[in-house]
């Protein structure tokens, strides 16, 4: 905005800094607060001008029970088939499995690339890195054809398999393990550990920070994935939460309260994860940055 932030007297500069930061804070938090409050209102109050921020008391009385009906509608779904929790479960399973396999496969591959000198290592590394340039959006249709050949359309494995591991994960693990002291590995070899034993007992336990950030990143990506489930899960039962919300939003366009209740419910698992592991969420950037070193 202007130079004062940096040159002005400490007092003025500091106040200005806070003013700017708080304005942005209002911008980022306002829609979240809106979601939480609107989840307890009916459409009429949500669309009233000006927006009231506090759900009116009558919604909490036993007669109207708007706060309850919103969430009830969100769970019951479009076709009264109560698939919300089933879809939530699908999302959790898919995201969790992908996080787990990404961590395992990426660390295994990253370890192989970081600490062994085999023929064609550079070629292997470059080949894996080059897949980072292939956007998923460009290969979704061939992938769909592969998946239908493997008969995994409309199944949980079908949602998981294309995301078992990511090139970015391999890259991160390799960068991290390159700086891992080789002396430890040698000492373990002298002590008679097998190569796989070294990976499982020395390398894995010593990479917890990068594993945590990588796992969280992968979990979040799958939790957020809309495009692949859109192709892969046609059966209602097999849908994931983003798809559920998308269909729900299509049908309940004018029922904003129920829509926000649905959005809120669907965000709760991620909020719990975020606020309990915020260190790793915010540290994700740190690991990402370390690639430079």
């Amino acid at each position: 905005m202007n130079n004062n932030k940096f040159v002005g007297k400490v007092g003025v500069g500091e106040i200005l800094t806070y003013v700017v930061l708080i304005l942005v804070l209002v911008f980022t938090v306002m829609p979240l607060l809106f979601m939480v409050t609107a989840a307890f209102m009916d459409a009429k109050q949500i669309m009233a001008m000006p927006y009231s921020w506090i759900p009116s008391k009558e919604y909490f009385t036993t007669e109207s029970r708007t706060f309850f009906t919103n969430f009830q509608k969100a769970i019951v779904g479009n076709h009264n088939d109560h698939i919300f929790f089933r879809n939530l479960w699908n999302s959790l399973i898919v995201a969790f499995t992908c996080a787990l396999t990404t961590v395992l496969l990426a660390s295994l591959c990253g370890y192989g690339l970081a600490k062994f000198n085999f023929k064609g290592k550079t070629v292997v590394f470059m080949a894996i890195m080059s897949t980072m340039m292939i956007p998923f959006e460009a290969i979704m249709i061939p992938l769909y054809l592969v998946a239908s050949k493997l008969k995994i359309i409309n199944t949980i494995p079908g949602l998981i398999i294309p995301f078992l591991v990511s090139a970015f994960g391999v890259f991160q693990m390799r960068q991290y393990l390159i700086t891992f002291p080789s002396e430890y590995l040698d000492a373990a070899r002298v002590d008679g550990l097998t190569e796989f034993g070294i990976y499982a007992r020395i390398v894995l336990p010593n990479s917890t920070p990068v594993i945590a950030t990588l796992g969280i990143l992968s979990f979040r990506n799958q939790w957020d994935n809309l495009l692949w489930p859109l192709l892969c899960s046609q059966a209602e039962k097999m849908k994931t939460i983003p798809l559920y919300i998308s269909k729900f939003a299509e049908e309940k366009q004018t029922d904003e309260g129920a829509l926000m209740a649905c959005a809120l419910l669907a965000s709760i698992p991620m909020f719990i994860l975020f606020f309990s592991l915020s260190k790793y969420f915010l540290g994700g950037a740190a690991v990402y940055e370390s690639r430079k070193g």
Binding site: F34, A249, M260, M270, S278, F281
Partner: peptide, 16 residues
């Protein structure tokens, strides 16, 4: 506070 919107799924963000 700045990071919190990033943990929502894009679908939820667009819906809000």
């Amino acid at each position: 506070a700045y990071y919190t919107p990033a943990v929502l799924s894009s679908v939820v963000a667009a819906t809000i």
